[in-house]
Measured scan of single mutants.
Amino acid sequence: ELREAFRLYDKEGNGYISTDVMREILAELDETLSSEDLDAMIDEIDADGSGTVDFEEFMGVMT
């Protein structure tokens, strides 16, 4: 189920989504998050600083 959700956002099928897209997902899930909260969450999610979120990083957030 998580893989299907990931595929919805990984429109190009390249195995990752951008941190911008991940930020939008988080904002949709919790509309009360401030910009600073979102920045901090993205920094934590994208631990390797690649600017992308792969499936493993995505799973870590969603579980």
Rank of each mutant, 00 (worst) to 15 (best):
D48R: 05
E24M: 14
V21P: 00
A47G: 11
M59Y: 12
F55Y: 12
T32M: 06
D43C: 12
D39M: 06
R23H: 02
A40M: 10
D39T: 07
I25H: 02
S34C: 06
M22I: 09
F55K: 02
F58C: 03
F6W: 14
E28F: 11
G49I: 02
M62S: 02
L29N: 08
M41F: 07
G13E: 07
K11Y: 09
S35E: 14
I42Q: 01
Y9E: 06
M59D: 02
F6N: 02
Y16W: 14
M41P: 00
L26I: 07
V53C: 03
Y16K: 06
F6H: 02
D54R: 10
L33E: 00
N14S: 09
E31P: 15
A5D: 06
D48L: 07
Y9Q: 05
D20C: 10
L26E: 00
E36K: 09
S50P: 02
I25W: 05
E57H: 15
S35M: 11
L33G: 02
T52N: 08
G15W: 04
E31Y: 13
I17W: 01
F58V: 02
E56N: 11
L2G: 04
E24R: 12
F58W: 09
V61E: 03
D54N: 15
S34D: 06
V61M: 10
S50I: 08
R3Y: 15
L33W: 11
D46V: 05
V53E: 00
M59A: 11
L29G: 04
G49Q: 08
E28R: 15
D46A: 05
D48E: 09
I17N: 00
A5K: 15
A40L: 10
K11M: 08
D30C: 13
R7M: 15
G60V: 13
F55M: 05
A5N: 07
M41Y: 08
L38M: 06
D43N: 15
I45L: 11
L33H: 03
R7Y: 11
E1N: 14
F58D: 00
L33R: 08
A27N: 06
S34T: 14
A40I: 08
E4T: 04
I42D: 00
E56K: 10
E1G: 13
